[in-house]
Design a binder for these strands. Structure first.
Length: 657
RNA sequence: GGCGGGAUAGCUCAGUCGGUCAGAGCGAACGGCUCAUAAUCGUUAGGUCGAGGGUUCGAGUCCCUCUCCCGCUACCA
């Protein structure tokens, strides 16, 4: 063994013309999990993500919008960066394909492959789709001369141009050889078989340049051409290592340990073209290329093809946050947990918000959160808040050890949901243990020794859990440790195997990590999350939400919202709710009930006869057992609501535009 | 069209070499407990394991046919 190789893991670089959604969030999350897990084990890690910006479409879209293309893609790239920051993904590097370091590497790759003869000139004459940046053969094109891609169908252009081609066909045998000899190279196995089938069918050389329209990476010495966006994009994994200018960093990072991605870009690009390019360059191949499945809509509809239907991860976070009252950071972790836990190993998984929320209650609120809460509470009550110095139960210790082993095994197989399942075996075993031991009876009978063993066992189990959940839920891990009274700092994996490592901890005041969600009804998700927050009871410990630029919407999107002026006729507090007021409002000749989370800022009396702005066509929703038929608009100032009013009195029901 | 993967309790899914495999979790019902977040613990699900046929002493578990879904690939010059 020579110097220690860094565990280098990558996401694909994301097309900036899409937006972040729970699919790309999952890919990135898997990488984050692996990084955090490896780090915890003491390994050197490097986690790369980024954006793919050289597509011709971007330039055209920028022109339409009348903006400079680079500014345009920069803004879009920032959307991704903010989304990933908001999800607490601890990437080490964010690469953009418009950066000089990437351009430099891509051009060098091109030069070298040109020199070795892996690239050659060829003439292409035929049909070209600008949108897909793809050439089509004569036989693929129908008489209408529209793009054969069913999801595109844009008019094709007749082109004749000389381009550079990559000798992909020459690498089929070498690829197959490597794939057969290295079972861990392409995973999971079902996907590997698809690749083998694809290669055995015979590969075709790939056209890797396009004519230069002012956007993209110019071909060295041929400024009238740019490098095809896919050829350019894959090279980002190499660019980020500093190849060829920074041999030291390169040596530390390359080859990549894992290229993680969703399945649609696996077979042709990451499992075929990219490895062939690497072989042609004479570089070592990545250790593992892994493809996970898609989120598909409920009812068997294939929503994965178009990810437009999938929500933005931070929208879901806001929803969890406002429904549960969990802190923002813990809501982020809740979604991280749910994404990893709901995505099954082999294939596509169903995305259903209701199922997510159900699992939130079951796994996070009832099982994990409550286990911590009841333990800390009992230590407070029976031991004056100091963990006893007893030996924890060895039988539970054996169960914990077994789960820790299982966890480690399945993580190395990329079965994240199975890892979390293993951790939750501990949770449910200890919940059962508590009932079996009945510490409340032990306390009454003054059976001190048994009580000490019981509570020490609980504390120890939670301490181990705080380590096991850390890769998926870094904030929740810290919260568990805070509750137990453990010193701050990164948990270490080795401590998961030290049963009985803690004693005499001073526990914190018990505070539920994950409050239960009362209403699981799945609302249509595109509900504006920020406005909704002002409506919901706000927990006092809510951390300020990470600022998130919302994506641009069209006028049509805006026009769907029916905003109206309303007169407040009646305002009264809602029983058992600190922050909710029940408003009876007049909208034109209609009277409605609206619930608003403004009780902390406004007295019912002072609201009477005030004019407000409401969203009149929001789907009704039950809050605290009362149906709210609309939503009041208010500014959100650090969680406090400030209602919006017309400047002068106007007729109730007047539309707002 | 070819190749591959699915179809298992209301929901999401496990089921390795054919014989306590008909399972888990959630949801629901009932009961226990009271430390806890109306939590937790226990019991309860009688589901023709997509349809039909076959091999076998015995088949979700192997073979054939069919239906539906999904993926990869090819579009028949």
């Amino acid at each position: 063994m020579t110097s220690r190789k860094t565990y280098y893991i990558t996401t694909p670089i994301y097309y900036v013309n899409g937006r972040p959604h729970i699919g790309s969030a999952l890919t990135t999350l898997c990488c984050d999990f692996l990084k955090r897990f490896r780090m915890m084990r003491g390994e050197d890690t490097w986690f790369l993500t980024g954006t793919d910006e050289n597509a011709t479409k971007n330039q055209e879209a920028a022109q339409e919008a009348g903006v400079d293309p680079l500014d345009f893609v920069t803004r879009l790239a920032d959307d991704f960066r903010q989304a990933w920051d908001g999800m607490a993904y601890a990437y080490d590097d964010f690469i953009r394909t418009t950066e000089p370091r990437h351009v430099r590497t891509v051009q060098e790759v091109f030069r070298r492959l040109r020199d070795t003869g892996d690239l050659y000139r060829g003439t292409y004459e035929g049909w070209y789709c600008v949108s897909d940046e793809t050439f089509f053969r004569e036989t693929d094109v129908r008489d209408d001369h529209l793009c054969p891609n069913e999801e595109c169908r844009k008019p094709l252009r007749r082109v004749q141009e000389e381009n550079w081609f990559f000798r992909l066909a020459a690498y089929g045998d070498r690829l197959l050889e490597h794939i057969e000899a290295n079972p861990e190279f392409l995973q999971p196995a079902s996907r590997r078989n698809e690749v083998i089938g694809f290669i055995k069918q015979g590969l075709r050389d790939a056209s890797v340049t396009r004519s230069n329209n002012g956007w993209g990476i110019p071909v060295p010495d041929e400024p009238d051409k740019v490098i095809y966006v896919w050829f350019d994009a894959l090279i980002n994994y190499l660019s980020a290592t500093g190849w060829p200018d920074d041999p030291e960093t390169y040596a530390r990072l390359w080859p990549a340990s894992v290229h993680m991605m969703a399945k649609e870009i696996f077979v042709r690009f990451h499992a075929t073209l990219w490895p062939a390019m690497i072989i042609a360059l004479g570089l070592p191949l990545p250790q593992t290329v892994y493809a996970h499945g898609w989120w598909v809509g409920s009812g068997g509809k294939k929503e994965g093809k178009r990810t437009g239907g999938l929500p933005h991860p931070l929208e879901l976070v806001r929803d969890i946050e406002s429904r549960s009252g969990a802190s923002h950071e813990l809501a982020v972790d809740a979604l991280r947990y749910l994404l990893l836990r709901e995505m099954v190993f082999h294939g596509d998984s169903e995305f259903s918000e209701e199922n997510f929320l159900r699992r939130y209650n079951a796994d996070l609120a009832n099982d994990l959160g409550n286990l911590c809460n009841r333990t800390v509470s009992m230590v407070g009550r029976y031991c004056d808040g100091v963990g006893p110095a007893a030996q924890p139960d060895p039988e539970i210790g054996a169960v914990v050890a077994e789960c820790v082993r299982e966890y480690e095994t399945v993580v190395d197989e990329f079965r994240f949901h199975a890892a979390l399942e293993a951790a939750w075996k501990i949770v449910s075993r200890v919940n059962r243990y508590i009932v079996d031991q009945a510490p409340w009876n032990l306390a009454k009978a003054d059976r001190r020794d048994e009580l000490d063993v019981t509570l020490t066992t609980c504390i120890e189990a939670i301490r181990v859990l705080s380590i096991l959940v850390a890769p998926a839920m870094p904030h929740a891990s810290a919260a568990l440790r805070q509750q137990l009274g453990l010193a701050e700092g990164q948990p270490q994996w080795a401590d998961a195997s030290r049963w009985g490592a803690s004693s005499g901890l001073r526990v914190a005041t018990p505070r539920p990590l994950y409050p239960r969600i009362q209403d699981l009804t799945a609302e249509p998700l595109p509900t504006p999350p920020e406005k909704e927050r002002a409506m919901e009871p706000q927990p006092t410990d809510t951390v300020a939400a990470a600022p998130t630029a919302k994506p641009t919407i069209t006028y049509d999107d805006f026009a769907k919202i029916d905003l109206r002026i309303a007169d407040i006729i009646e305002a009264e507090p809602v029983p058992n709710a600190d922050k909710l007021l029940k408003l009876t409002v007049q909208v034109g000749d209609e009277t409605r009930t609206i619930l608003a989370g403004i009780a902390e800022m406004y007295e019912p009396a002072e609201l009477k006869s005030k004019q407000i702005v409401i969203v009149a066509n929001l789907a009704p929703r039950k809050l605290r057992g009362i149906e709210s038929q609309g939503m009041l608009l208010a500014a959100d100032v650090d969680g406090q609501a400030v209602i919006l009013q017309p400047e002068t009195e106007v007729p109730a029901g007047a539309p707002v535009r």
